[in-house]
Simulated assay, not measured.
Amino acid sequence: MSVTGELDSLESSPASPHKSSGLSERTLTSEELEKLRNDRVLVSDFKQQKLEMDAQKNWDLFYKRNTTNFFKDRHWTTREFEELKNCRESQGQKLVLLEAGCGVGNCIFPLLEEDLSIFIYACDFSPRAVEFVKQNALYCTERCLAFQCDLTKDDLQTTIQVETVDVATLIFVLSAIHPDKMQKALEQIYKVLRPGGIVLFRDYGLYDHAMLRFKSGNKLGESFYVRQDGTRSFFFSREYLAGLFQQAGFETLVNEYVLRETVNKKEGLCVPRVFLQSKFLKSVPSLSPA
């Protein structure tokens, strides 16, 4: 089974008896350090360019193979991110959410079921994923608008008015974007967020077990790898992620590693997972003194 199939499918359920959060990254064993030090061969420039050109096709093929069955529904988002409730209550109005990289709707449909006072913009790189969202029985255009969008080049403001979104979620999305284009995606989200709006972020952290399982020949760059199916994954450090958001104009509210152990009793495996869970604010402009 590929890295994608065996490990990435576990990201949807953060609750675990072996969970901790903090500022420190995971400590590597001497064997793991040696493996990373020795993994210096990068995928050729030609193949890297082709992977970038075929990025949308590779994700479309991923959803063709797996349809809606790969990831579990993310019923944990309101527990992990209280802003999904508080932002609406503090405004005294319907919460407007942007789910950037919605996939087949594993995050948005639990939210639509749980909260009747929410409107969700849901976009994804993959046209096939967007079609799966629209085919879901819970999809209703009065409460949700799904559309295809490449955050690295398409203009979000074609669909969403500037400064009208209360909360944007980036859950296991930014890691799939080439590092050179991450900044553009964040700048797009910044424009449609209202002042005081928040980005809720969860993604792969540095030294996650999935990162250490990549074999030689899969490395694209520092902390950046390609899977067997052609999809790519970046593994974030706190410092790198904070720098990206700060350059896009955001303030950091929370930026912590979530360290977990995923146990497979059948195979007798216990593997360390590392995620980054963060919150970033679009500040309210201060009023100039009269």
Score class of each variant (00 low, 15 high):
residue 1 M to A: 08
residue 2 S to L: 01
residue 5 G to F: 01
residue 7 L to E: 01
residue 8 D to Q: 10
residue 14 P to Y: 10
residue 16 S to M: 04
residue 19 K to E: 14
residue 23 L to K: 15
residue 23 L to F: 15
residue 24 S to K: 13
residue 26 R to G: 03
residue 28 L to P: 08
residue 31 E to C: 08
residue 33 L to R: 11
residue 34 E to Y: 10
residue 35 K to N: 08
residue 38 N to Q: 14
residue 41 V to W: 01
residue 48 Q to H: 05
residue 49 Q to F: 02
residue 52 E to R: 13
residue 54 D to F: 10
residue 55 A to S: 15
residue 60 D to W: 04
residue 63 Y to I: 08
residue 71 F to W: 07
residue 72 K to Q: 14
residue 77 T to M: 15
residue 79 R to W: 11
residue 83 E to Y: 14
residue 85 K to C: 14
residue 88 R to F: 11
residue 89 E to H: 12
residue 90 S to G: 14
residue 93 Q to T: 14
residue 94 K to R: 14
residue 103 G to H: 02
residue 106 N to G: 12
residue 108 I to S: 06
residue 112 L to A: 02
residue 113 E to G: 00
residue 118 I to M: 08
residue 120 I to M: 03
residue 121 Y to M: 04
residue 127 P to C: 09
residue 129 A to K: 07
residue 130 V to A: 07
residue 132 F to R: 00
residue 134 K to N: 02
residue 135 Q to L: 09
residue 140 C to H: 12
residue 140 C to Q: 09
residue 142 E to W: 04
residue 143 R to T: 12
residue 145 L to E: 12
residue 146 A to Q: 04
residue 150 D to Y: 07
residue 151 L to A: 08
residue 154 D to F: 12
residue 154 D to Y: 12
residue 155 D to C: 15
residue 156 L to P: 10
residue 157 Q to K: 15
residue 164 T to F: 06
residue 164 T to G: 04
residue 165 V to E: 06
residue 165 V to W: 07
residue 168 A to Y: 01
residue 171 I to H: 02
residue 179 P to S: 01
residue 180 D to K: 11
residue 186 L to K: 02
residue 188 Q to S: 11
residue 188 Q to L: 00
residue 190 Y to S: 00
residue 191 K to T: 10
residue 193 L to V: 05
residue 203 D to F: 11
residue 210 A to Y: 01
residue 210 A to H: 03
residue 210 A to N: 06
residue 211 M to V: 00
residue 211 M to L: 06
residue 222 E to L: 11
residue 222 E to M: 07
residue 223 S to T: 04
residue 224 F to M: 09
residue 227 R to T: 06
residue 231 T to W: 06
residue 233 S to A: 15
residue 234 F to N: 05
residue 241 L to Y: 03
residue 245 F to M: 10
residue 246 Q to S: 10
residue 248 A to K: 07
residue 248 A to Y: 05
residue 253 L to C: 03
residue 257 Y to G: 08
residue 259 L to P: 01
residue 262 T to E: 10
residue 265 K to T: 04
residue 268 G to L: 05
residue 269 L to F: 04
residue 276 L to V: 13
residue 279 K to A: 02
residue 288 S to M: 12
